[in-house]
Design a protein around this nucleic acid. Structure first.
Lengths: 218, 218
DNA sequence: AATATAATGTGTATTTTTTACACTATTAAA
DNA sequence: TTTAATAGTGTAAAAAATACACATTATATT
């Protein structure tokens, strides 16, 4: 009737045209030296979401990030010392906002690293399964949620947006059809600004019109 | 770091053209006399899913039912005595298979009753919110899951199937278009059997071809 | 036997959405 | 000025979704 209680958090971002997930190298029994998703015990008087935000903050320096609950896992055999119930979340963050080179504030992990979601090694506990759940949920809800815009900078190009879609769906999309559809949806604001620092034609920047988006999906 | 640990289970079925949910009247502090979804503590050495199955069995007499996890809720203020983490599930059962008039095997509840999902009173704890989650998930996943066929008898009429869709979507559908689409999907087996016991033209019975369904959605 | 009742079962035309497909324009660097 | 790299654009065909109404059939009633 009583159980240990942890939260784990998949932290996704988008960088270099690819969907990435932040993993940490464990420094503690069990699964010492294995890669795992960030996670830890929920404090006695702490709300579960606050615990997730705390853990995400420790790894990214960001507060008030986008969170979705994925699942509760409570298998008696998850942990050698008995049941440790964990509630898994996924967080979406903008790569350009992340404070990199955060020094580990705890000693239960050594380093954190962004992995391409399709190049993830075998992880501690059931974390590969949780990653699958996260990717599935992203994919299933892609068309109804702001997820793509939580992964991208506030101002983004249509090519970047298409790459987000492609990396979540795991398939390539036709450029003309993609742009036609996005512009028909009507919730992208075309800006009078352009990409800078590229050595080829600069693409126009867009941003999400949240009001129109929400009007459409609620 | 330790928390009490319960499971709660929305049990849905379909009867008389309507989607129903099983609720119980509590006989215990807190929320004594309130209606609530079935749920109880998970035993120390019991898997979480086994606990859900146990609770569903106590209320329906059915084993091996269709279950989906909805969410974990762990608010510090859910329960006056402190945090009680609950993992909410939904179960789908066939009304014709349910053992009705099950006598309460426990004394923490008085009676159980099927409610039309749109005529549910104010419930104990956060159970109205969980019901919303369940209905939302049913709706969102309607087209990819076997949910409609878990709610209907094994052999069903197209009208019944359409009623399931309508009650989950909360809108009426065009009969001819619905039938055209279902038959195009190709996973319904048309049987040479007909409804009995009706005082009007008997409708043809169908059943789900699980193999074809799974081939399509995995 | 005739009639009333209640639900079953069926087709077509229109609109909307999705798909397939290739070249010119622009910018910066070499 | 040439090269390299990506941006940006339209049309035709196919598929899917929508709107819409009546004849058929089984039973119950008179």
């Amino acid at each position: 009737m009583l159980s240990f209680f942890t939260v784990d958090c998949l932290i996704f971002t988008f960088h270099d045209g690819k969907l990435k997930v932040l993993l940490t190298e464990r420094n503690e029994y069990p699964y010492r030296d294995w890669w795992a998703m960030p996670g830890y015990f929920v404090n006695k008087d702490e709300e579960m979401e606050d615990a997730v935000n705390r853990i995400a903050y420790e790894h990214t320096g960001l507060k008030n990030i986008y969170l979705e609950q994925l699942a509760a896992l409570a298998g008696l055999k998850r942990h050698p010392e008995g049941r440790i119930l964990t509630v898994a979340y996924m967080a979406l963050v903008r790569y350009d906002e992340v404070k990199h080179k955060i020094k580990p504030v705890t000693n239960y992990m050594r380093q954190a690293k962004w992995f391409d979601v399709h190049e993830v090694p075998e992880l501690a506990f059931d974390h590969n399964e949780i990653l699958r759940l996260g990717l599935d949920k992203l994919k299933r809800n892609l068309h109804y949620t702001m997820a793509p815009y939580e992964l991208l900078p506030e101002k983004f190009t249509l090519t970047q947006l298409q790459q987000v879609y492609e990396s979540i769906l795991g398939e390539t999309l036709d450029k003309r059809n993609f742009r036609k559809k996005m512009s028909n949806l009507g919730y992208l604001k075309e800006l009078d600004e352009f990409q800078t620092g590229v050595s080829y034609r600069a693409a126009r920047l867009y941003k999400l019109d949240k009001k129109k988006f929400l009007k459409l999906f609620s």
